[in-house]
Design a protein around this nucleic acid. Structure first.
Lengths: 238, 238
DNA sequence: CGAAGAATTGACCGCATTCAAATGCGGTGG
DNA sequence: CCACCGCATTTGAATGCGGTCAATTCTTCG
């Protein structure tokens, strides 16, 4: 079952996503594959490529969610990017992948040989746009990792899963209730590794948000944000 | 006076830079400008563009060092990227710049109108390669910000200023002494904002490295690393 | 129903921050 | 050349946020 496919109950048409919405909240990409594509499917929790392996393919995600991570020799892990439909990975400035990619949900993707990519202006143009978005997302994430408190990081993470809210592109609260349902196909440990925290700290932040009446958690991997605006004000960004 | 120009006394020819060497250690770029370029010069410590302003130009640095930063409303600052010759900035997935760019040294650069960029496959191809490098650098920096200790961050920062050492591309120690001179055109506060620390913590880390005989600091903005290998082992990366 | 893994909660600790004071350095003018 | 001033840096002491370690509870699934 694909969590991402129903991550948002809201069915508004996919407008220009707010800059800092993280990848996995995106809807399936409508983009047609460029020539040279090989379509690939992966189950949830598969390793799509490994840090340090020969980087001979680049991948564009058509549907599903992927996380990129890096390890330090002593086992510390950082989840570097969360990717969704339309995002790209596998690019490297060396001969080797610089991150490991794992599927969080079932994934449909288009793979291109690196050689093909390097000789296709059309593909480069497409990828170039994706990369720009991802670079901006990394900028936001660097701010989060370097300067935000634990509570702000968790609030920012959750807001990133809610499209069309927060930041410049915010539509404001819905008519009556300011409520959104969000599926989170990640463990607390993974969220922690993404936010530069420990799983205990993430758990405590969630508990605090529940106590403050900002969210409910019917399941571990699914939450209901009952007051998006209040959550947004806890991100530190505004 | 351009600190970057003599940042490295070593004069070995510019080989393929190790993946994680940060931008400002790079040598002047040999790349010829693409059609549509406007050459621009900036003194040290000028603001080249501002977070939130209309993003109508992209800039490729020919010579000098630039830092990109973001601010939170309460004044917390994160320096997002350190850029040098060959690096690009000003790209955004929105209509506005997502970071502020300031010169650390005198800078020579080529500016392109966004419209020109969007219609020039040649320019896109060039920029695409730069972006790949910068994205990988951001990946490394996310690991640093999320998971490394203060001492490891400072050691990583210094190693990033030493080309051809550390990581995969390491040449190993020089014949006799394992010593390198490094110019640092940044204040302690700027280094702290780059590493997600406070200036006091950065200062303490420097002091510790001096006490351990790993470096000397004849001036605040210039240090001599007397044992590159020992420093490298403090980065946590290896 | 029972077991295994994930999440929560509590108590304590330590690293980095905060607040504060002293020192060093660079630049200016006498 | 030297004295002085302003600013950056260094150093010290105390605090606190998030981490660590450990016990318990909740979920999910066979």
């Amino acid at each position: 079952m694909n969590h991402i496919a129903h991550a948002e109950i809201d069915r508004t048409p996919p407008k220009h996503d707010a800059a800092w919405t993280i990848g996995i909240a995106a809807r399936p990409s409508q983009d047609a594959p460029v020539a040279g594509a090989r379509e690939a499917h992966f189950a949830a929790r598969e390793t799509l490529c490994e840090e340090g392996a020969r980087a001979d393919h680049i991948v564009i995600i058509a549907q599903g969610a992927v996380m990129l991570s890096k390890l330090l020799p002593d086992g510390r892990r950082q989840i570097i990017e969360l990717l969704g439909a339309g995002d790209v990975f596998g690019l490297s400035n060396t001969a080797l992948y610089d991150t490991t990619a794992e599927s969080l949900t079932p994934v449909r993707a288009f793979q291109y040989e690196r050689r093909v990519y390097e000789n296709s202006p059309e593909l480069q143009r497409t990828v170039s746009q994706k990369m720009t978005s991802q670079l901006c997302a990394m900028h936001d994430h660097a701010m989060l990792l370097g300067r935000k408190t634990a509570a702000e990081r968790v609030a920012s993470f959750l807001m990133g899963l809610i499209p069309n809210r927060g930041g410049h592109g915010c539509n404001g609260p819905d008519a009556k209730a300011d409520t959104r349902h969000v599926a989170i196909p990640m463990t607390r440990q993974e969220i922690a590794d993404y936010l530069g925290l420990t799983l205990e700290t993430v758990s405590r932040a969630f508990s605090q948000l529940k106590k403050d009446g900002i969210l409910q958690a019917p399941r571990h991997d699914e939450i209901v944000v009952t007051n998006v605006c209040r959550l947004c004000h806890l991100t530190g960004t505004l």
